[in-house]
Amino acid sequence: MAGSSLLTLLDDISTLLDDISVMGKVAAKKTAGVLGDDLSLNAQQVSGVKANREIPVVWGVAKGSFLNKLILVPLALIISTWAPWAITPLLMLGGAYLSYEGMEKVVHSLRKDKSEHSPEAREKRLQNLSQQNAAEFEKKKIKGAVRTDFILSAEIVAITLGIVSEAPLLNQVLILSGIAILVTIGVYGIVAGIVKIDDLGLWLKEKSSSLAQGVGGALLAMAPWMMKILTVVGTLAMFLVGGGIIVHGIHALAQLIEGYTSGFSGLSASLLTNLASLLVGMVVGSIVLLAVNLIARVRR
């Protein structure tokens, strides 16, 4: 009797693991696009700190990301049970904020480029930089990256929850927790590797092998360009993710875009859909930025 009970238990566990494996793979595929955006965003968010502080900053953001998911996973399960109607509006608010952050970065970049033509402004920036408290700068970087990660994590959790919504509660908890842990370790492990590419290049450059020196020189030459590209890609990702969330939240707009792109091939349709999300993100980001600036002026 005990033997048959044990076999039944093992069979149930095996079935549970198979279900989790299948749904986990589907969830990983569905969230792959958001993971790419998460990677590019966080890589550019932690750039700009001193070389010897890059890994501590990445670790600080990773801890914040774990905390985000520790909050989001149970919160998502509670909301999906008691107030499923609230998930879409909350995600749309997050998408609007992400679009706002992207537009703020664009405006700041344009203003910075213009101010570089002024020697006085350049000198003032250098003085401010020399007097800036490094610890406060790192805290600001970590705080901004964790805030952005919260919105991206919320979308990853929401996508995963949509896939496992019909599964038993135990499966939902295990899959959501597993995806959250794997995503955080994977993304920030790669981010840590990206920000240390220049150090790897310098280490290889000092080797006696000509091959190692050549690879090291290539990495050193590539590192600054990679960070510049990630900065641009990360900002575009803010608009794409933010705009995509808003498009999916407005059913009529999603249908309009889907109807327009239905006559095109797979790749063309995907590009047009992403372009539409990008434009929506930029428009919403501009509106929110304008509203924030107007409120700030009124308060002053």
Score class of each variant (00 low, 15 high):
residue 193 G to D: 05
residue 193 G to T: 03
residue 194 I to N: 02
residue 195 V to I: 09
residue 195 V to S: 06
residue 195 V to P: 06
residue 195 V to M: 06
residue 196 K to C: 07
residue 196 K to V: 01
residue 197 I to S: 09
residue 198 D to T: 12
residue 201 G to D: 06
residue 202 L to A: 15
residue 202 L to I: 06
residue 202 L to S: 15
residue 203 W to M: 11
residue 204 L to A: 04
residue 205 K to N: 11
residue 206 E to V: 00
residue 207 K to N: 12
residue 207 K to A: 08
residue 208 S to I: 07
residue 208 S to N: 14
residue 209 S to R: 10
residue 209 S to K: 13
residue 210 S to V: 08
residue 210 S to W: 07
residue 210 S to L: 12
residue 211 L to I: 13
residue 213 Q to L: 00
residue 215 V to I: 12
residue 215 V to W: 03
residue 216 G to T: 07
residue 217 G to D: 02
residue 217 G to T: 00
residue 217 G to I: 00
residue 219 L to H: 04
residue 220 L to I: 15
residue 220 L to P: 00
residue 222 M to R: 03
residue 224 P to S: 11
residue 225 W to C: 02
residue 225 W to I: 07
residue 227 M to F: 06
residue 227 M to Y: 03
residue 228 K to Y: 12
residue 229 I to Y: 01
residue 230 L to Y: 10
residue 231 T to K: 11
residue 232 V to L: 14
residue 232 V to Y: 12
residue 234 G to V: 03
residue 234 G to Y: 10
residue 234 G to E: 02
residue 235 T to I: 11
residue 235 T to D: 13
residue 236 L to D: 02
residue 238 M to P: 01
residue 239 F to N: 02
residue 239 F to Y: 10
residue 240 L to F: 09
residue 242 G to N: 05
residue 242 G to P: 05
residue 244 G to Y: 10
residue 245 I to V: 10
residue 245 I to K: 07
residue 245 I to R: 10
residue 246 I to L: 08
residue 246 I to M: 08
residue 247 V to L: 07
residue 250 I to W: 13
residue 250 I to K: 10
residue 250 I to Q: 09
residue 251 H to V: 11
residue 251 H to M: 05
residue 252 A to E: 15
residue 252 A to S: 14
residue 254 A to V: 00
residue 254 A to N: 14
residue 254 A to P: 02
residue 254 A to R: 12
residue 255 Q to R: 12
residue 255 Q to F: 09
residue 255 Q to M: 12
residue 256 L to R: 12
residue 257 I to N: 07
residue 257 I to R: 10
residue 257 I to M: 04
residue 259 G to S: 09
residue 259 G to Y: 07
residue 259 G to C: 03
residue 259 G to Q: 07
residue 260 Y to E: 10
residue 260 Y to R: 04
residue 261 T to L: 03
residue 262 S to F: 04
residue 262 S to D: 14
residue 262 S to I: 05
residue 265 S to C: 04
residue 266 G to H: 15
residue 267 L to H: 06
residue 267 L to K: 14
residue 267 L to G: 02
residue 268 S to P: 01
residue 268 S to M: 14
residue 268 S to E: 13
residue 274 N to R: 11
residue 274 N to P: 02
residue 275 L to C: 08
residue 276 A to Q: 00
residue 278 L to Y: 07
residue 278 L to F: 12
residue 279 L to D: 00
residue 279 L to S: 10
residue 279 L to W: 06
residue 280 V to G: 02
residue 282 M to R: 06
